[in-house]
Design a protein around this nucleic acid. Sequence first.
DNA 1: ACTGGCTCCTGAGGGC
DNA 2: TGCCCTCAGGAGCCAG
Length: 271
Amino acid sequence: MPELPEVETTRAGIEPHLLGQTVAAVEIRQPRLRWPIDPKLPRLLKQQRIEQVGRRGKYILIQVGDGTLILHLGMSGSLRITDPTLPMRKHDHAVMTLSGGKQLRLHDPRRFGALLWWEGDPADHPLLAKLGPEPLAPDFDGAYLHNASRHRRVSIKPFIMNSQVVVGVGNIYANEALFLAGIHPGRSAGRISRQRHDKLAISIQQVLRKAIRYGGSTLRDFVREDGQPGYFSQHLHVYDRAGEACSRCGTDIRKATLGQRSTFYCPRCQR
DNA sequence: ACTGGCTCCTGAGGGC
DNA sequence: TGCCCTCAGGAGCCAG
């Protein structure tokens, strides 16, 4: 399930294949994603030169001459760079053929992803305008988290998963970061001290940086642009480890539901 | 202004 | 072997 590390792994993987290339053709095979793909997209992109492959939160931004292709992988999406002769797979919903001959294919079985066209500054797009800071940027720290959480009663886990608070932290890394910080996922965000928010901000950055180094986490279907899985899954301390011994104290990892999401934590290490 | 619940979708996995 | 059920989840949207 693509969170920031998986999206960044994908972005960095496709970037060298796209930069400076021209879009030769775009084929929409299944327009019904989270929002319908604009039928004009192939025409809008044709002959456009790819100038930048960026990222904002979990959105990949492919900037061409006249605008930006905004791409979200949802929970089951992946992008691959392939040879055009490779047969299409089920759920290959959109295909971009590049001037150099390779193809960029969007594969997304659950179709929670999105492929949108935007002319103008991507930061002004309604989906991006209200996003919180990037967790790996200097403006994200304990002071910010502490300030943003005052008088908020929501549990800390859904709080850090809220993209208006900070982008890119999904269920896996929220669980992991709270474990590293020793904070119980159900604790009210507004009742966490400045010092513990410092530790949480650092833990979020640590777990995301490390996951990016390992190419993200592959649980079910995430693959990199070359089809390889990510290798961070084996470094997860609590996620999907209910009943296993805590790596720090040996207590059984517990599973609970918080904000309709599976939550894993060590009842002894996390308070 | 917040908060929690619902929703989209398909495939994996478990029970019988 | 096959069928049915449950669960997984990003994030917009809505009601209270």
